[in-house]
Nucleic acid binder design. Sequence first.
DNA 1: CTTAAAATGGACTCGTTCGGTCGGATATCC
DNA 2: GGATATCCGACCGAACGAGTCCATTTTAAG
Lengths: 153, 153
Amino acid sequence: MLRLSKKADYALLAMRHLAAHADRGAMPARELAESYDIPAELLAKVLQKLVRAKLLDSHQGIRGGYGLSRPAASISVADVIQAIDGPLTVTACSDLDHSCDQYAKCNIRDPLWRIKDRIVSALAATSVAELATDMAAIPPPTGITVPVSVVRK
Amino acid sequence: MLRLSKKADYALLAMRHLAAHADRGAMPARELAESYDIPAELLAKVLQKLVRAKLLDSHQGIRGGYGLSRPAASISVADVIQAIDGPLTVTACSDLDHSCDQYAKCNIRDPLWRIKDRIVSALAATSVAELATDMAAIPPPTGITVPVSVVRK
DNA sequence: CTTAAAATGGACTCGTTCGGTCGGATATCC
DNA sequence: GGATATCCGACCGAACGAGTCCATTTTAAG
């Protein structure tokens, strides 16, 4: 299914929200959670991970909260997902981790890794800023949508 | 983490194997399972799904087994994965299925769906035949260029 | 200085899903 | 008719993800 985790969803939602309301100061987790009906405690954990990944700045205390650590345009969807779920892997094994019963006899590793790289590219090509502005496509110059063409930046 | 299921792995392994040995006749599940140390019963179920998805032909009886239903070049990795895990979705919700607590307030749906389409394209761009020949890059079909470099390491 | 509002962090529960198993039915060839 | 296959549904157990609870620390406000 290749579905992304709910935590990653929440992270993207939050990042988008913070990007859209960057003008206002720090935004508390509570407020974020209420905006999207997300369990506050859980969102808090997600936000903490984003802080540790340097994507957010936090500031505690009575009027504390979270804010983007850098311009939304410089943060990609891939950054956010990897901050939450760790390095993005399509296969159980990776360059480093050979822990898979079939590793020795596996012959589809390389092509799958290439596919993984293309997925990462797709995720890296969309920035949080684009999530915020959204509202329908940035139309791909050529008419057709098929290939993974990345023209941006 | 966007990892694909083990069943999907097994399916791809099997498809590749069948593509590589298409010359020989029907290949029993048992033989396939032993080749890759996959639990036979489990692989059997995977193969059955592939049959139902019309990607394989099966033939029971004493010299029965499985074989590709059409040329390996015409079967994509996306076909195989979707046959096993169902329609590929990155988000909990889809065009049809709005079952997600945040659906109403969700504002990242559209961009994520676009990303999903690009992932599907990436999976659709690789055929089972390419898995079988593999051994480093197959130059992308004429015209379209794969944008982001896959060169690494 | 006190207090309240916030982030931080760990440990824990709970439910679902996934990987895997079992048993039996059906088809085909010798 | 028997051996070897696919086929199919039901089942189980462990792992993982989502969510909860609680205790601590930090910081601004009053």
